[in-house]
């Protein structure tokens, strides 16, 4: 049993380590979502009313929408290069089940998009004059929410990996599934700003993440098995 578990963690760890190394060496691609997030949030006060009161009222929703769009930006490439160079076949034939390898890919993806997005969000929130109570709720909800969105997005990326122009289809598949996450996430920050407890929304996001963690890796693995043979 113990031997089995060391083997299992090693597949996950191998892929996380490999992807982090790959992403670090091509980091110009990875900063894309972050730069997008930074620019849109910076431009927002310039484009609309820069008064603190107005910005503060739209900040929770805006920060969440921009984070959502930023995670969509690089989703298309998640499995693309692995599909093109045949790595995906090696994933399928690896010693461990495909869903662990897939979970490794999603983990690395979240560590390089969702995590940095959540970490810089307080800085951007201050640009949008988010009222004081909202910062912790924003970070925590984004941490959970981006993880759910990475898992959902990976399913879309797996389904469209064999399509040449899969970007639009991917967005159409993923968008409806993102909506509940967006609504709950933005509400979480909204509640915190209004001075209510935001634990209920946070618990909902946590429950969503738990379900996504159980269901999604298997679904992504199934989708990849179908796509890989096209």
């Amino acid at each position: 049993m113990s031997e089995q578990s060391t083997v299992t963690t090693s597949a996950w760890r191998t892929i996380v380590a490999r992807d982090l190394k790959l992403i670090w060496r091509q980091r110009t691609d990875v900063v894309n979502p972050l730069v997008f997030y930074l620019i849109t949030i910076t431009l927002l006060p310039l484009g609309v009313d820069p008064s603190r009161q107005f910005l503060g009222s739209i900040a929770p929703g805006m920060l969440w929408i921009m984070a959502l769009l930023a995670t969509l930006l690089s989703l298309d490439t998640l499995f693309r290069s692995d599909y093109e160079d045949g790595s995906l076949i090696q994933f399928q034939l690896s010693a461990e089940p495909l869903f662990l390898t897939v979970l490794g890919k999603v983990t690395a993806y979240w560590l390089t998009t969702g995590l940095p997005l959540s970490l810089i969000s307080p800085v951007l929130a201050s640009m949008l004059a988010l009222p004081d109570g909202g910062y912790i709720a924003l970070m925590l909800s984004l941490l959970l929410g981006t993880a759910i969105m990475s898992l959902i997005g990976a399913l879309g990326a797996a389904l469209t990996v064999c399509l040449r122009a899969g970007g639009l289809v991917l967005t159409l598949i993923v968008m409806p599934l993102y909506l509940p996450v967006l609504i709950i996430g933005a509400n979480c920050v909204g509640s915190a700003v209004a001075g209510f407890s935001f634990l209920r929304e946070l618990a909902l996001l946590g429950a969503g993440l738990a379900i996504a963690l159980i269901v999604m890796p298997a679904a992504i693995a199934g989708a990849l098995k179908i796509s890989a043979n096209q």
């Binding site: 490999r18 190394k21 790959l22 060496r25 290069s81 093109e84 160079d85 045949g86 076949i89 090696q90």
Partner: peptide
């Protein structure tokens, strides 16, 4: 397979 699963950045 006929493609080499080799990552150019590694």
């Amino acid at each position: 397979g006929h493609q080499a699963p080799v990552k150019p950045a590694l």
